[in-house]
Amino acid sequence: MENKKCSFRMIRYELRNINGNFMPHFFGIVFPNMMSMIFTTAIGKQVPDAVRPETMVSIIICMALIMPMSIMFLGYGALYSQEVENEIPLRMHLYGYCEKSLSMAKVIAHLIFLSIAFIIYGIFQEIMLDIPKPAFSSLLCLLLSLYLIGVMFLLMVHSLANIFRKFSVTFGVSMFIYFLLMMLTGMMGISTDQLPKALQGVAKVFPMTYISNDFADFWQGGSYNFMPYIQSCIFLGAVTGILAMYAQYRNRRVGSK
């Protein structure tokens, strides 16, 4: 019996598994579309015509940012922590699946689901709102950033679930982080520069802050200093990496002392 590698069958299984979970559908597809409608309608009326397109773009980017966090952090966390609590990943390891193969299948399946969510979101925005067309490079940059954030958040909550091993604790912690990050990084309608100085400093270590506050500025092209954004990505990646290593250490097959 050899270690089983990530396969098409595994990805299909994970996609079915996501499909059987209510969270990603609601928080990842319905919620951002609904929120973008509410915000654009409410705020759109209050801003002068000259800045309306830019405001709309800003709202749409913010709501798009909710999708990777809802699908790959909150939704995945809820699903996976239940699996961990029921020792399903252990059962899979005993069938010869290594952690790497299982995680890879989960990441790929969630990226596919996220892509579907993006397509639905894009079509919905195109039909419902009059949004200026983005420059190809800006759109590509935004999408890659959203995928990157999604992967990091999935691995983060995957590690948290493996550390806590309880659905209630993992879900509580992930909910707290989710709403905290939404507030800090400008996704809840409060822009980062309205926060107290200390919290602004905290917000700057997260890439979502730059996406929600700055990416609208180069929606139709232009230059942007990516350095602080890249640094924040490295920071989030490092936190994810440390958590993943710790979770793997805690869940290793132990054997002889």
Partner: peptide, 27 residues
């Protein structure tokens, strides 16, 4: 991982028919 085991309690996901779970696990 080269040993097979039937544990006292074994759990699987219930978001799909067991046919799909079986086909995935056994590839």
């Amino acid at each position: 991982e080269q040993m097979a085991v039937h544990m006292q309690t074994n759990s699987y996901i219930s978001t799909m028919p067991v046919r799909c779970v079986m086909e995935m696990i056994l590839n």
